[in-house]
Simulated assay, not measured.
Amino acid sequence: MMRYKHASRLRPREGSLFTCVAMSTLSLLAAALPVLGAEKPTPPPRTGPVVVVDPIEAVQDALQDALEAKDRDSVAMKLDTAIAKTGNDPAAFVPQVLLFAARRMEAVGNVAVGAAPGGKPAQPDQAAVRRIDEDERARIKAFVGVSLSRLAASKDALVSSLAPQLDNREDTIRSMARELLIGYEDRSASRASDFSAYRAVIEEETRVGREPRTSLALLMYESDPGLALQTMTRACQLRDPAEIKPILWSEHVVAELFWKRRFGFVARDAVEASAVRALDDLSRHPRWWVRLYVAELICQNAELAERSVVDRLKSDDDARVRMPFMVARGS
């Protein structure tokens, strides 16, 4: 595996804007972007052809200079240089930023060990190593947010550039892409996720005759199965009302049960026969992404899982439908 040549520079240059004491400033710079967590997340599995990002060394060098810059103006100038070297193309710049961040994170924890008395290597302070790990990851992820913000690309363009990285060969890049995409969903307790950018990506794939990216579909369904089903119904360009209406009606029946639960019209674990029937009907649908809705929903809501439906979906001919039972659930 190629090693980024600056990966050994674990510490920022003295006075660099991207130090832990500057995090409040960075949060303002990246306010319009999703926040990457400082912790090291579990990477999502690859579900499609492996994606490899080849480094553009001139871009990587410019990003390194931006990371070490001492003030906002210098950061902006260095990032503009990096962006220009990709032709101001989000599809080229975004993967380079993720690759740069991944290479930096490879160096996290590689603390130089001095010599103990007697010439033996000193044992590092594990608590100190953990602090360096957390601080450095936070610093790098803040830099990713600022870099994407400086690109000034549309949300659709950024999501389109991030989606292929869900299948990157590197765990760190897949994890960052996933976190950023979830952030762009703009989900909250008071409003539904926004899948409009996902819809644009899938519509384009459908237009050119490609199947929707499996990793992106799985992310959508995991986030909000009902909204994902609605999005796929529209993005896949279904035209026949006789096919569209049963899908949307069945999803509505299930969604109504969750609405009743949320507002206290029924118990929080109530099960209605109409919802169970709707899921059974959709589990037999010929389109894989309709059956995937049922698979993901019953994985998230076991009380709605009829044994016959579970068995049918676990043995589905399409691996994409079986995926919710296998990914991060240990079954």
Rank of each mutant, 00 (worst) to 15 (best):
Q230F: 14
G118R: 05
A235I: 05
M105T: 10
R139Y: 04
Q237S: 14
A152S: 09
L151C: 00
A127T: 04
A127W: 00
L238A: 11
S161I: 03
A189I: 10
L181G: 05
R187L: 12
V113Y: 01
K141E: 11
D156N: 09
A217M: 15
E222L: 07
G145W: 08
T206E: 15
D224G: 03
G114I: 02
P121L: 09
S147H: 10
Q123L: 13
K141V: 10
I173W: 07
Q123W: 05
A157P: 01
R150P: 01
R207M: 11
P164F: 06
R169F: 10
A107S: 15
A228Q: 07
D133H: 05
V111H: 06
E222H: 14
V146H: 06
A177W: 13
A128F: 01
P212T: 12
S154G: 03
L180N: 07
L166W: 11
F195A: 03
R131I: 01
V144G: 05
I132R: 00
V159F: 11
G109W: 06
D224H: 07
L181R: 02
S154R: 03
G114V: 03
E185C: 11
L218K: 12
R207G: 11
T172W: 08
A157R: 00
A153R: 06
D125A: 00
S223I: 02
E170T: 12
Q237V: 07
S188Q: 01
F195Y: 11
P164M: 02
Q230M: 12
D156T: 05
P124A: 00
G145I: 08
T172Y: 13
A157H: 00
